[in-house]
């Protein structure tokens, strides 16, 4: 019995970060990199990966040290731990993937003050076991990477008319040059001439529209559930089957 509870808890800490509590689209945290480095798909995906690495490592260490660190210095201690991992990531990226390093620029350092990383260690890792914190980090990392990559794909297609792979992750290539897939190029839908979507303004607008779409879906689901609950009110209510929300 207790085994099952533990398993459910593991599952919950892993899954909640991916969709239900997606850090970017639902909790609306960590917006700065999500707007700044999402000009291209590759840069945003790279940012997501590095973010995941920092989040998982800091979550694990914060959780390991949760009984050692006194309450008075919790925040500074967490910040130092996060800053350490960010510096490690900075060095490794600079050495192994210099293209990614230069395209992310100062936003790599700004992972230190990313609300999600600090938020997860303050609200989750310092209260939970190491394994749960690890799963929480992986789940949130995947959720963030997915979200940021979606924005990156949309902005690159709208802003450039095509999708390029291999410019940053140089090990992916076709005959030694990056692969470019023309999706909207030379079609009527090609809006890249306006340059709006590759400009900072495009980031805000794409993000705003995406959040509105998500809000619309959530509202629709709520309304549907309400209607379903109304019609199901007469027979015996079977609330257990309909999901937690």
């Amino acid at each position: 019995m207790s085994d099952e509870i533990a398993r459910n808890r593991h599952k919950e800490s892993f899954l909640s970060g991916i969709i239900k509590q997606n850090p970017l689209f639902v909790a609306i945290l960590g917006m700065c990199p999500a707007l700044a480095v999402t000009k291209t798909f590759e840069a945003s995906f790279g940012m997501g990966l590095l973010f995941t690495f920092v989040l998982v490592c800091s979550n694990v260490i914060v959780s390991l040290l949760r009984k050692v660190v006194p309450e008075e210095i919790e925040t500074p201690a967490h910040i130092v731990i996060i800053a350490t991992f960010v510096t490690i990531v900075k060095m490794l990226t600079n050495a192994l993937l210099p293209e990614l390093y230069s395209s992310l620029g100062v936003f790599l350092s700004l992972l230190v003050v990313n609300c999600i990383v600090l938020g997860r260690s303050e609200s989750f890792a310092k209260k939970n076991t190491v394994f749960d914190s690890f799963l929480d980090g992986v789940g949130n990392g995947i959720g963030y990477t997915l979200a940021i990559s979606i924005i990156g794909i949309i902005r690159e297609i709208l802003g450039k008319g095509s999708l390029t792979v291999g410019k940053i992750f140089t090990f992916i290539s076709y005959n030694g040059s990056p692969i470019t897939i023309p999706i909207l190029k030379n079609s009527v839908f090609d809006v890249s001439m306006g340059k709006i979507f590759s400009n900072p303004a495009g980031g805000f607008i794409v993000m705003g529209i995406l959040l509105a779409i998500i809000a619309a879906v959530v509202n629709y689901n709520k309304a549907k559930k309400k209607a379903a609950a109304k019609s199901a009110a007469k027979p015996a209510p079977n609330t257990n089957l309909g999901g937690a929300k």
Binding site: A201, F204, L211, A215
Partner: peptide, 14 residues
């Protein structure tokens, strides 16, 4: 309704 709050703020910012 869907744009209320943060979405419309982001579009204004854009």
């Amino acid at each position: 309704k869907a744009f209320k709050g943060i979405p419309i703020a982001l579009i204004v910012a854009g």
